[in-house]
Computed example of a mutant assay.
Amino acid sequence: MNHLLHLYLVDPLPDARLGALIGDYIKGRLDRNLPAGVLQGIIHHRRLDSFAQTSAAFRRSKQRLNPDLGLCRGILVDIAYDHFLAQNWRIYHPQPLEQFAASIYRLVKDNPNLLPNALRRQLPRMLAANWLVSLRHLDHIEIILQRLSRRLSRANLLADGTKQLMRHRQGLEADFSAFMMETQLFFHPVPISHPGILH
């Protein structure tokens, strides 16, 4: 669910970015007929998901949240980290977020045949909402969580996740900064200009 973080960390090649984006929608064995760069991006997406499960910072973030959220704690941390990345994008990436997002929107619009059906159905709404840039705003995060809550088969508390995010924001932001430093060692993305500084 953390689209922006996946896009930030993957190699900045168009096919790899596309693979990183669609990774949430591709389960099981990979289609080897996909372009090599797209496969690389999907594999990178899976590596990041696995890495997050072993990250001390990510686990600490989950522990801060209401245990009644259950498995949804991981989903909420994913989205919270995207929110923090969007808000502090200029610290982590030299290109303005608006320009970066526009390049991703062009990429998906130029490659509709490579998009999974679920993403293709969501795409008009996501583009209309400028979803990558809108991650900066809590009201957009709340909409995301409400939609995810309705899509899950079991009853859950995810729709009230923004309250948890606000209640534990200081600790979650500290965890996010630590997580981003961990990724520098593991993935070597674009260098951080001012590590650990949040605005």
Rank of each mutant, 00 (worst) to 15 (best):
R150L: 14
D24T: 12
P124F: 07
R151S: 15
Q53D: 11
P96A: 13
I144G: 14
Y81H: 15
E98T: 06
G161R: 06
L138A: 02
H137P: 00
Q164E: 15
P14M: 13
L13Y: 01
I144N: 13
I79C: 09
L127Q: 12
L148P: 07
L76S: 11
I143K: 15
D78E: 15
G74Q: 05
L127N: 09
I91M: 05
R154N: 11
Q184R: 04
L97W: 04
T162K: 04
D175R: 07
G196H: 03
D31W: 03
T162C: 08
D160T: 14
H44L: 08
D160P: 06
F186W: 00
Y105E: 14
D49A: 07
A178P: 05
D82Y: 00
A174M: 03
R17A: 06
R154D: 13
V10W: 01
A102I: 09
R120N: 10
A57K: 04
L69E: 05
K109T: 00
R167P: 01
N33W: 04
F179K: 06
Q63V: 03
L97S: 07
Q170D: 10
A16L: 01
L13E: 12
T54L: 01
F100Y: 10
P116M: 08
N130K: 01
L198E: 03
Q170V: 13
N130R: 02
N88I: 12
P189G: 05
L5I: 09
D11S: 10
F176Q: 08
R32Y: 05
H188E: 06
L158I: 13
H3T: 10
D49C: 08
M180R: 02
I79S: 13
L48I: 14
L127W: 04
L4K: 04
H194M: 09
R154Q: 14
D78Y: 05
Y81W: 15
D68P: 00
N130T: 03
G171C: 02
R154M: 12
G19N: 12
S55W: 04
R106W: 10
A80I: 12
A101Q: 05
L4H: 00
S193A: 10
N88G: 03
P195K: 01
S149H: 06
P195T: 01
L7I: 04
M180F: 11
D175V: 14
H3G: 07
G23I: 13
L157A: 12
A16P: 03
D110M: 05
Q95V: 13
I104C: 06
H3R: 09
A101D: 06
V133K: 01
R150K: 15
D49H: 03
G196E: 01
A56Q: 08
R47S: 04
L4G: 00
L69Q: 05
P195Y: 02
Q63L: 12
G19S: 14
L152Y: 07
L165P: 09
P14F: 11
L115W: 10
S55N: 02
D15E: 15
Y105Q: 04
K109C: 02
M126F: 15
H93N: 14
L97Y: 00
L7G: 11
R151G: 11
P35C: 07
H188R: 00
L7A: 04
F186A: 11
A20H: 13
R29C: 00
L39P: 01
R59I: 03
R136V: 02
T183F: 06
L145N: 08
G23H: 13
Q99D: 14
I79L: 15
V108I: 12
S50V: 03
H188W: 02
V133E: 13
P116L: 08
G171H: 09
L13V: 13
F176N: 00
